[in-house]
Design a protein around this nucleic acid. Sequence first.
RNA 1: GCCGUCGUAGCUCAGUGGUAGAGCACUCGGCUGUUAACCGAGCGGUCGCCGGUUCGAAUCCGGUCGACGGCGCCA
Length: 434
Amino acid sequence: MHEKHAEYTDVNEILKGEHTGEKVCIRGWIHRTRNIGSMVFLNIRDPTGVVQVMASSDSVENYEEIKPLLLESSVEVCGEVAEDRRAPGGYEVRASGVNVIHAAGVFPIQEDHSVEHLLDNRHLWLRSTYMRDILTVRSTVFGAIHEYFRANGYKEFQSPILTPLACEGGSTLFPVDYFGDEVYLAQSWQLYAEAAIFSLGKIYTMAPSFRAEKSRTARHLTEYWHAETEAPWLEFDGLVELAEGMVCNVVKRVLENNREELERLRGGDMDYLLRVKSPFHRITYQEAIHKLNEAGLDIEYGDDFGAPHERELTDIYDKPVFVTHYPQEIKAFYMKRAPEDESKVLGFDLLVPHVGELIGGSQRETDIGAMESRLQGEGEDITRYGWFLDTRRYGSVPHSGFGLGVERLVTWLCSLEHIRDSIPFPRTPNRYRP
RNA sequence: GCCGUCGUAGCUCAGUGGUAGAGCACUCGGCUGUUAACCGAGCGGUCGCCGGUUCGAAUCCGGUCGACGGCGCCA
């Protein structure tokens, strides 16, 4: 046993050659181990990287204690850093002391693993380089979204998670027993936000949203983080610019802060991300239908896009693409009609490769009569929207907002096969554990 | 909700009607420069579950449960 050390060195500093020849102490977990008689090699992982430690029966007094250590045991190691081409990464720590913090049991995750096994052991799989890289990018994404809105004068506003009403007719809600009454887990912040802009002005949030749809796809979660914004006096063109600016800021920040992680996750293909700068492509729904028909897909004006249509549109363009001016029949009741053509709405979707719809937004309808007839047309009980309709009764102003699926953003940035890896503990129709 | 694939050792899988297999992990032994170390030995099973066909079922049939992949719906 050696004495406690006040300072520990990050593994990545050793791998950058910053401590060669010095005595350092590191602490972390055994990532891999190789034992050849009276010498053992321990690859030690900390949050910054993995470095090889060499310990022999001559160099450490408790060699017999460390020789049988299993993967993921936690240790402190002190020793001299040496540059050595035989070591993975080119550097190793030649141990003079190894302090066993905890000798782990047999770790359930081995080299061979299935998707199912990794999901069952998600709490342990978080330790993988893969998950660490994604969650590091995710942290930057959350920070960049907060930063963008605050830098543009937006205040953060919170709405309730337990709510008595739906936001959009079609979506399915998770019911919750509220002392005998039925309430629901929120699927959007928007309706409450539309009440708050009259007080705070420009606002945003990042909060969980819940959808009880049994969507079995690589881009749906039942619980996801929803970045939403709402602003008074903001009209459609300004809204599109706001969305574009936000995405650009996130891309800029992850490229600045997480270049290494992104290169590992994207297999070195960074060209696409480096292209993501203003302006994005902007086409109308009508133009999109035309493009799709030209490309040989069978879709008529008035149909909503399916996965193949979104895929084709994102393939055509080399950057994210805004699709605007959808027919009002296929969009939500709260979207404002386009003044030049009442059959269309001032709404947009931002489409990106692989994940499809990243953001949906609109200028909001302010005509209370139009909203009421629209809700009735969808079979909604208008009395449940009483308080919300008050936002159109007392000093109504033009306003706009959008919602972004944060996990879809992370999935897109990291080029993930499935959205479940963009969140630490994914909730999907078939899975709510661990 | 619809379509499809798969459930065999702790993990990844092979096994198409006749005594349950391999690699890895783990345990023991060997090895002073390993790179997913290597060599030898050992441990390890209600073949998802229920029923049926058969002299005999991991294998064929029916049902059921679970997971995964895709579509639809959405962010």
